[in-house]
């Protein structure tokens, strides 16, 4: 009965909706001169464009519990490779390595959210 009153009150007054569960990655290093690295994190698109031979470090953030340990899954590791980054106690830092030209996806798997990125590796 009490729960029904809460639902009615929310419907009448407008209760805050829970924060959306999200995960994203951001680069913390760049590409060398004359080589490309672009990470798009927009509502419409999540994508990475990178030149072959480039390695870059990324930090993964999410809106899950603070103790969440997200992982990265790469569809074709012959195009893009992932390594954990030895960077202090954080388990949210990774190194991504563009091995050869092609397209693949990298997916962040956090406890409360997943996010896929389309990856394009450009030729040398």
């Amino acid at each position: 009965m009490k729960r029904a009153w809460v639902i009615l009150a929310c419907a009448a007054l407008g209760c805050p909706s829970p924060a959306p569960k999200r995960a994203a990655l951001s680069p913390i290093t760049g590409a060398p001169p004359a080589r490309r690295l672009e990470v798009v994190n927009s509502e419409e698109k999540h994508a990475i464009t990178v030149s072959s031979g480039v390695a870059f470090a990324v930090m993964v953030s999410d809106t899950c519990d603070a103790t969440s340990s997200p992982t990265l899954a790469i569809a074709d590791p012959s195009i893009l490779r992932e390594h954990p980054l030895a960077r202090g106690p954080s388990k949210r830092a990774f190194a991504l390595v563009a091995v050869r030209a092609g397209t693949t996806t990298v997916t962040i798997k956090a406890e409360c959210a997943t996010q896929a990125y389309e990856v394009t590796v450009l030729p040398q």
Binding site: P32, S52, V54, A55, H83, P84, A86, A95, V97
Partner: peptide
């Protein structure tokens, strides 16, 4: 062995990347 640029990764005992460097 080929013209271009490539990163060289320094990988520690637990397979974690300690650092990397791009060479031409």
């Amino acid at each position: 062995v080929g013209a271009g640029a490539s990163a060289v990764l320094f990988i520690g005992p637990d397979k974690a990347v300690l650092d990397f460097l791009h060479l031409w």
